[in-house]
Simulated assay, not measured.
Amino acid sequence: MIRFWGQPRFSRKPLAPVGYELFIREGSANNWKVPNDFSKFTADQICELLMQTTPRLPKNIQNISINLDIDQFIDPKFCQTLFSVKNKLAGIHLAIELTEHATVQGTTEDQLIEAARRYNSANLYLILDDVGSGDNQLKRVQLLDPYVHEYKFAVQNFRPGVTLNKIMPKLTFWHELAKKNHKLFTIEGVESKEDLLILSHYQVDMLQGYVLGRPVYLPTQNDPLGSIAACSN
């Protein structure tokens, strides 16, 4: 059995929940775990779960994003299936986050560009997750930039043992690039009130992290575990 867990995303000003990033978990009511292999989930499975989950979301949640690894991202079936359901999600706006996970061997730049173009043509909002980490480095960002709407920078990828101040040069680089390229910019990994104080004065669009909200279980329409409360800070 699979379910989504959702971590709230907050606008910076005002500091308020604007959506969820969705994470797939598998198991049962008493034993949910992170899957070892996300590629085993088909487009149909993910979209069916979306259809079953979105009617139970809090009314203040109007935006959701799901993560796709490279092999899923370049598979036309995923784009086609997500496009087929995006207008059926009870008024919820759907975005795609391309993860920083390693590129599948043999994947070409042309395949990446063509995939990004497909999502753009389907009016599916595209986010580059964890820029500056993994394979989402400057080369890929520049390659896909015409089709991307948002960059996310994950502070937690440079921790533990590194203070937020030491991360600032990297964060500043990506923030400035986002402004230059007219992209929205989200900072993930806001883990303390001190982080929040520093970053709230940093002119970003959105914030995400444990101090604002941890991932929560999202029930489906037929789930006996009840509903979830609206996000709050």
Rank of each mutant, 00 (worst) to 15 (best):
L143Y: 10
S28A: 09
P35W: 08
E191Y: 05
K166P: 00
S227R: 08
I64R: 02
Y147T: 03
N36R: 12
G189T: 09
L124Q: 05
N120Q: 13
N233K: 10
L212T: 13
H93K: 15
G132T: 11
E188H: 06
L128G: 08
Q111A: 09
L49V: 08
Y20M: 09
D223S: 05
L199M: 10
H175S: 14
Y125D: 04
Y20F: 15
Q111V: 01
L89Y: 08
Y125N: 05
A229I: 04
F41N: 01
L177A: 12
G161N: 15
I2W: 07
M206E: 13
E194V: 14
S65L: 09
L49Y: 03
T99H: 03
T107W: 03
I66C: 04
S11G: 14
G213F: 02
E176P: 00
V162Q: 15
L143P: 05
G209R: 13
L50M: 09
V141P: 02
K139P: 00
S84L: 13
D110Y: 00
S121I: 08
S133L: 12
M1I: 01
Q52M: 11
A115G: 03
V34L: 11
N233S: 11
Y119D: 04
K86L: 07
H175F: 10
A43V: 04
P219Q: 01
L94R: 08
Q62K: 15
